[in-house]
Design a protein around this nucleic acid. Structure first.
Lengths: 242, 242
DNA sequence: ATAATTTTTTGATACAGGTCAATGCATAAG
DNA sequence: CTTATGCATTGACCTGTATCAAAAAATTAT
């Protein structure tokens, strides 16, 4: 895990004392005394898969750093149609900054652990140290790029390409080994149900399932049991992303 | 126009001297001497509809405030499929902050005028005045919300709903009269071609055209000539957005 | 004006992905 | 072990949107 975190926070490899994880975009900017101050207000919270962290249009009361697991941001229409608009991985900060209300629902996609802090505690720090704001801006710009990149997938790719894109995204976010150049026999557990995957890709669960089967029979992936995926050759998977 | 600009920058109604427009998220944070300093480096540039402002993977060399007109951000796949990932209106700031390269193509959707400044000039100011960074973070967070909101449209709405959403978006961004509560007989010129609209909605031009026809025969919109649209009742259009 | 070109609309047909229904396959509970 | 329960897969069929083709309308050039 450490290897991957460095990617996001290479300049200042300071650990957050309360969390033992580098907050992407936050802790690197904190001075030792600020870190200590913040750690008084943080607490670890576990959420089982599926549990809601904060609801759409509810008040924002806290920010959290993801310790491990995957968080999904989504929006539901009145008639029940749902779209997952983003996935967030450790050590992202979640919670809509500077807004009274949430614009989306945040849920634990897998079992997760958060490092939670009150809204006011972080905002107080930000006021005092503009460097934090810079890190937040960088994370937000990166998220915006990722969201727009995903819009290309949603708007213009086929079901087969969408599913390949999703698997590629997970493969390159969940397991840090790939960064070292180990691109063969990458194995990981899918942190999402078929329903969540469908809602992320703008498809139905049946279509997702059929595309998984197609990738399996084509030898691009191996599915041992349910959500356990092995990608023998990541480059071949990438070719399918369109 | 002034009315709408206040919406985005109500706290500090200072004008940017070089541009005569309030830079959403920027000028409000500038002190008089900074404003003067920046205005030395800015220049007005006109672009006809369709002209590229900056290309995908090209170096970022400048930032611009949109003076008037609509800018589209898009991405093209190798095989020619294209997705518009965002529209920007006056007085947004465009240009990917803190990145060497662009991740998307920026083009004039309509005839536009920009107020351009060199990358270094704005970045120098930001280093000196953290308040600017705060404004930028607010704009970026708002853009991220808008992008995610659009992902719901792309992933889960029907062609009919998508076209209604698009018209609603334009109606509420192009013409400032609606903000005063004048929701009847809203008239405006579409700043995008059918091809651009299709690429924004993840549809084909034929489907977009058919949905326009449907809205016209249903009395939701009136099309006098080509791109001249009249919405007699904005609430009725909104109902079609799903 | 008239012609040339581009953009938009309309029609006929095809197919990707959705819908509905049933079956399989885990893990958990009795 | 058997039964329940919740995911995931598979099959048969249907529909919304894409595709292909052509006409109409708008714009630009001559």
């Amino acid at each position: 895990m450490e290897e991957r975190l460095d990617v996001h926070n290479s300049s200042i490899p300071k650990l957050c004392r309360s969390c033992e994880v580098r907050h992407r975009g936050i802790c690197g900017a904190l001075k030792p005394e600020e870190l200590l101050e913040l750690s008084k207000y943080t607490r670890r919270v576990d959420y089982p898969a599926g549990k809601e962290i904060s609801g759409d249009s509810e008040d924002v009361v806290s920010y959290s750093t993801i310790m491990h697991g995957v968080v999904k941001l989504s929006k539901m229409l009145e008639d029940g149609r749902q779209q997952v608009v983003g996935l967030q991985f450790a050590p992202d900060l979640i919670g809509r900054m500077f807004s009274i209300k949430n614009h989306f629902t945040a849920e634990a996609a897998s079992n997760i652990q958060l490092c939670k802090m009150p809204k006011a505690a972080l905002e107080r720090l930000i006021k005092k140290n503009p460097e934090i704001e810079h890190k937040l801006l960088e994370q937000t710009l990166r998220e915006l790029d990722e969201a727009r990149e995903w819009m290309v997938t949603l708007g213009r790719k086929t079901a087969a390409e969408k599913v390949a894109c999703f698997l590629y995204l997970i493969a390159t976010h969940i397991d840090p080994t790939y960064i070292d150049g180990n691109l063969e026999n990458l194995t990981f557990e899918l942190p999402l149900t078929r329903a969540d995957i469908a809602d992320f890709l703008g498809l139905t669960i049946e279509t997702v399932s059929r595309q998984f089967t197609k990738l399996r029979t084509d030898g691009i992936i191996e599915i041992s049991v349910g959500r356990n995926i092995c990608v023998p050759d990541l480059a071949k998977l990438k070719e399918r992303c369109g």
